[in-house]
Amino acid sequence: LVTPETLHQLEDRIELMKLAAVKGRKTDTVKYGSEFHSILHAISTNATAKRFLDQLESRIERYRRISGYKNPDYKPSVSFNEHLDIFNAVKEKNSVLAEAAMRSHIKRSLRSIEETLERSY
């Protein structure tokens, strides 16, 4: 359920991500992006998705850090813009657009993780 308080929390993380991205602070961008996802997870009404994410939570966080901290090509602005697209869709209560934006973000993140692992290991 998206409440005005939830929107405020999401918007706050978006603003923090924006500042971190402008300053090129990768670790902060990853941190606030993770918090953004946690808020979305908390308000999700899809029980199957919530159980799946609960089971994968520690792995997801590890991969976020690998990609954001160790990939020299990681651009905080790209992550920020993807989160902004998700936020705008949630704010507009457009679940189709929100899902599409999230899927796109996950796919791009996965490619980034794969590239990072290929370089590092």
Rank of each mutant, 00 (worst) to 15 (best):
E5P: 07
Q9S: 10
H41L: 08
E35T: 00
N81Y: 08
D73I: 02
K50C: 01
Y32E: 02
K93A: 15
A42T: 10
Q9R: 14
L19I: 06
K91Q: 14
H41W: 09
L1I: 08
E35I: 07
L1Q: 14
S38V: 00
V90M: 12
L117D: 01
K18T: 01
D85E: 15
S95C: 11
P72N: 09
K107L: 05
F80W: 08
Y32H: 13
F80K: 01
K26Y: 06
A98S: 13
D54E: 12
E92Y: 05
Y32D: 01
T45I: 09
I39G: 00
K50P: 00
F52G: 00
A20Y: 09
R25V: 15
T27S: 10
I66Q: 06
E11P: 06
D28E: 12
V96S: 13
E82K: 02
S79K: 06
H37T: 01
L97E: 14
N81P: 04
R13F: 05
R59W: 14
F80T: 00
N88K: 15
P4R: 01
Y63C: 07
F87W: 10
E57F: 05
A101K: 03
N71A: 07
K107R: 03
S38Y: 08
V22G: 07
P4E: 09
S77K: 12
I39D: 05
R111H: 09
R62W: 11
S112M: 12
S109W: 07
M102A: 12
T29D: 03
K26H: 06
T3Q: 07
L19K: 13
I14E: 13
G68E: 02
E35F: 02
R59A: 12
A47W: 05
K23I: 09
A101I: 02
M102K: 09
L117W: 02
R108D: 14
T116W: 04
Y121G: 00
S120N: 13
A98H: 06
T27C: 03
E114F: 04
H8F: 14
E61P: 03
P4Q: 09
F36K: 01
N88S: 09
Y32F: 13
N46L: 05
L7N: 13
Q55T: 13
R108S: 12
H41T: 01
F80L: 08
F52P: 03
M102W: 11
A20E: 11
M17I: 04
T27W: 07
K70N: 14
E92C: 08
K31P: 03
Y121N: 00
T48P: 04
M17V: 06
D12L: 15
E11T: 03
M102V: 06
V2W: 06
A20C: 08
R51L: 15
V22F: 11
D54P: 01
F87H: 02
L53M: 06
F80M: 06
K23G: 11
K75T: 05
L40K: 03
S95H: 12
S109E: 10
S44G: 04
I86F: 01
G24Y: 07
Y63P: 03
L110R: 11
N94S: 10
P76C: 06
E92Q: 14
A101E: 08
I113H: 04
E57I: 07
G24W: 11
K26L: 07
G24N: 08
Y121R: 00
I43P: 02
